[in-house]
């Protein structure tokens, strides 16, 4: 049977993040944690393959203990096994160290296909998927809009700005999924029951992985955050509340002042 590994990340719903108007800092309290949308589409794609051809779907996440919740949600959607890669030693990792850690975990497993999301909404880098593939020496196809299985190969519709490529690759390989690809299924009551009663989230820590200290965590991260800040707000312009005709007159006047009309 085919083995599919899906990498998921638990992220704060950045659409819900607000800035403190006084201090200009992020208000993180009360922001819901979700499975990253592109990853969830990747999981749905894997479950769809499972429905159609039969497959074992394993979800894996690197993160703090709380990521257990995201993994349980994946189990409740229909994933067969879940692995949480968690250790203080993995903390502070940039994409290089994250991908190196996840690759070390995946090396311990059997796989035909690895699916990751294209990018996470908290970092928006799109780097971890291709970097895992590089560490594992696998072909990767990014920006997948559709995935089909054909014998020992995958057929993927790969998105570009102004075109698609229909690509074919032999498994094992890695695909990064776009959230546009599908509409992820909901958890079922039975699934939720299973996820908490009958299934385990396997925990792997530092000692479970064969990877050099220099390739994980902060120490294994070539990049450093030098500083972070909120953007300077540009000077506020003129806001008017007039009737329709006056509004239009106001706009025309301003466009003429600026020589656009």
């Amino acid at each position: 049977m085919m083995n599919i590994i899906v990498c998921i990340k638990q992220v704060p719903d950045t659409n819900e993040v607000k800035l403190d108007p006084v201090t200009g800092t992020l208000i993180r309290e009360g922001v819901p944690s979700i499975i990253n949308p592109d990853d969830k589409a990747g999981l749905e794609a894997a479950l769809h393959i499972k429905d159609e051809y039969g497959a074992k779907v394993t979800v894996i996440s690197m993160g703090p203990q709380q990521a257990d919740l995201a993994l349980r949600e994946a189990l409740a959607m229909g994933a067969d096994e879940a692995i949480l890669v968690t250790d203080r030693a993995f903390g502070g990792a940039d994409t290089w160290a994250t991908s190196s850690t996840l690759a070390a975990a995946i090396k311990k497993m059997d796989y035909d296909l690895i699916i990751t999301g294209r990018q996470a909404i908290d970092g928006d880098t799109a780097q971890v998927g291709p970097q895992i593939a590089e560490h594992l020496g696998l072909a990767n196809i990014s920006y997948a809009e559709d995935i089909k299985i054909e014998g020992d190969s995958v057929l993927v519709r790969r998105q570009y700005e102004d075109r698609y490529h229909m690509l074919k690759a032999k498994m094992p390989c890695l695909i990064t999924a776009l959230s546009e690809m599908n509409k992820p299924r909901y958890m079922t009551p039975g699934g939720i029951f299973d996820a908490y009663r009958n299934k385990e989230v396997t925990i792997w820590t530092r000692t479970d992985l064969e990877v050099a200290d220099g390739n994980i965590g902060l120490k294994g991260s070539p990049t450093r955050v030098y500083k972070s800040f909120t953007k300077a707000v540009k000077g506020k312009g003129t806001v008017v509340a007039l009737d329709t005709q006056e509004s239009v007159d106001f706009l025309i006047e301003k466009l003429q002042e600026k020589f656009i009309l």
């Binding site: 950045t14 992020l26 450093r224 909120t230």
Partner: peptide, 15 residues
């Protein structure tokens, strides 16, 4: 930009 554009981060690759 990070956090969906909510904050900006300056990154170095020193070594």
């Amino acid at each position: 930009p990070a956090f969906g554009g909510n904050i900006m981060a300056t990154i170095l690759c020193p070594e």
